[in-house]
């Protein structure tokens, strides 16, 4: 049986190279620090970083919440790729060298901790990421049957609703790095999600108002960093292309 339980590489020495910088501290300068720890069975970067904090440096900053790959807190650049640290097993690095950088494109809190929350709240406000009913719609009575929905449509909405706002797509995007106001794939994914939701009554013109410019969908240069680094494998390329076609037909 193929019960690997994380191939045992116990005893190997892992080298964590971590960017250290606390912008709160006056005079602090960015630098790389290396920590060596012994690898354990099924060790993840989550476990490794906690061990470093306990044993070597209690001031090391990083963010984990669910530690199960579902909350999106622990996005960081792992050997050059933005990914979720909590579900990255150390045994996936054959040479045992692990370089960790904070996600770029977000405000740095300290070391590996960045403020994705602020970015995402702004994005949600900007895209108005909620169901827009008809302006004069009466609130639906809660005692009556819910409005019906095509089961396949519900499934398709969920496919896009799986985004966990980890920020990996934004950090992986050269465009977002160069242009501060560029919406980024996370925003497009939410727009695509609400655009396909029959409960949301926004029209193509409404969507054009939100994303019909170079900070929006026309700013996307199709670098595909989002598509190739999304921890949830969301269909970024396909959905952005769809929005682009839709917005061009709305705008011409």
């Amino acid at each position: 049986m193929s019960q690997s339980n994380g191939t045992a590489q116990k005893g190997r020495t892992l080298k964590f190279h971590i960017l250290r910088f606390d912008p709160q501290l006056k005079g602090d300068k960015p630098r790389m620090e290396t920590f060596e720890i012994e690898e354990q069975d099924s060790m993840t970067i989550f476990i490794g970083l906690n061990e470093i904090r306990k044993k070597y440096d209690a001031s090391l900053q990083f963010d984990f919440v669910c530690r199960a790959g579902i909350c999106g807190s622990c996005g960081m650049v792992i050997n050059g790729r933005p990914d979720l640290a909590c579900r990255t097993l150390t045994n996936t690095f054959p040479d045992g060298e692990i370089t960790l950088l904070p996600l770029p494109a977000f405000e740095l809190i300290g070391d590996l901790s960045v403020d994705t929350g602020k970015f995402m709240r702004n994005m949600s406000e900007r895209m108005e990421n909620w169901i827009h009913e008809e302006p004069d719609a009466e609130p639906r009575k809660l005692t009556v049957l819910e409005e019906k929905m095509d089961p396949d449509v519900a499934t398709e909405i969920y496919e896009l609703d799986r985004c966990i706002e980890c920020g990996c797509c934004v950090s992986a995007c050269g465009t977002a790095r160069m242009r501060k106001d560029f919406l980024g794939a996370v925003g497009f994914m939410h727009v695509a999600r609400f655009e396909m939701d029959p409960r949301d009554k926004r029209t193509d013109e409404d969507w054009y108002d939100l994303i019909g410019d170079d900070d929006g969908v026309f700013g996307c240069m199709s670098l595909m960093g989002c598509e190739d680094n999304c921890p949830k494998d969301l269909p970024h390329q396909n959905r952005i292309a769809y929005l682009r076609r839709k917005m061009v037909s709305a705008g011409t």
Binding site: R140, E146, P151, R199
Partner: peptide
């Protein structure tokens, strides 16, 4: 359901 949760539906 009115706030947008895409509850799985009956087929």
């Amino acid at each position: 359901a009115t706030w947008g949760v895409p509850w799985s539906r009956i087929k």
